[in-house]
């Protein structure tokens, strides 16, 4: 039994080891070298990249900016995604539900870069959104969203919203309908039913969605690049440029591990609070 299980699971773990662990280890090694040993041996041990990250303002400012961006995007995804998931899971039935779920996952079927560039056409001053606004409100202010922090957040919320809807949907539709009936019969208002029954029981979905969104958004570089313009510098884009333009792999690797550590610390801070609810 154990043997056949190991036979089944073995390749998976081997694959994970090779594809995740080994490259990460290599990067961790690089992050302590002066020059990445790609062309040949060379580069000596140094802590200078880590020291730079924690002493030079450019890194700390952008790290803080990326963390705030991660929180904001997660917040807006929850704000929009949770009610959508609630409607989908608890109000809409049968075929409509299937159709709407399909619409939620539809964006996954298109290329992320194409989707992001399509936002530039929507958000620019004479883009679709701006033109509609001028039709509805002639002489209104011009809608100059493109190449701003707002544009980045809009693009990221759009890209990651389906994760929030899906995780919340799964946990909301698993809640037994008689629990709400029981609470109502005990005199609870609809608001109390939501606050004291539905929300706590769907919290695992909200948490899972937040983690799935926060972690990649903090390191995101594509949406800031395309939609942010001058405002588009984030911790993620700095890391990316170390690998693509500056060709300073050790610094990029060191920044990557600092980001990983920060994200883990943020999780660790929230976890005791969540565990109380999830149990």
């Amino acid at each position: 039994m154990l043997g056949s299980l190991a036979l089944l699971a073995g390749p998976t773990y081997l694959w994970l080891l090779v594809t995740i662990f080994l490259p990460l280890m290599a990067m961790l090694y690089f992050s302590f070298l002066t020059i990445a040993p790609i062309a040949g041996p060379g580069g000596t041990f140094t802590l200078s990249h880590y020291v730079d990250i924690f002493t030079k303002p450019v890194y700390l400012i952008n790290l803080k900016r990326s963390l705030i961006m991660g929180l904001e995007v997660t917040f807006f995804c929850a704000l929009v995604g949770y009610p959508a998931a609630y409607l989908l899971a608890r109000q809409i039935k049968n075929r409509w539900r299937e159709a709407l779920l399909l619409l939620v996952v539809l964006p996954f079927w298109s290329n992320a870069l194409v989707r992001t560039f399509s936002w530039t056409m929507v958000l620019s001053d004479n883009g679709l959104l701006g033109q509609w606004l001028h039709v509805l409100w002639p002489g209104g202010p011009s809608l100059d969203l493109l190449y701003s922090y707002k544009a980045i957040v809009i693009g990221l919320v759009h890209a990651y919203l389906p994760y929030m809807i899906l995780t919340c949907y799964v946990s909301l539709q698993a809640i037994d309908g008689t629990l709400a009936e029981a609470a109502l019969s005990l005199g609870a208002s609809h608001r109390q039913v939501f606050q004291r029954i539905i929300l706590p029981l769907s919290l695992p979905g909200l948490v899972a969605g937040s983690i799935l969104i926060f972690v990649p958004v903090v390191g995101a570089f594509m949406e800031p690049r395309v939609l942010g313009g001058q405002q588009g510098i984030t911790f993620g884009t700095i890391i990316e440029s170390q690998f693509t333009t500056s060709f300073n792999w050790p610094l990029g690797a060191a920044m990557g591990f600092v980001l990983l550590a920060v994200v883990l610390i943020v999780m660790a801070l929230f976890f005791p609070l969540l565990r109380k609810h999830l149990n």
Partner: peptide
Amino acid sequence: INQRDLGMMFQNYA
């Protein structure tokens, strides 16, 4: 329902 002053017991206990 929540103003009818009833107690209810469900088959699955809820």
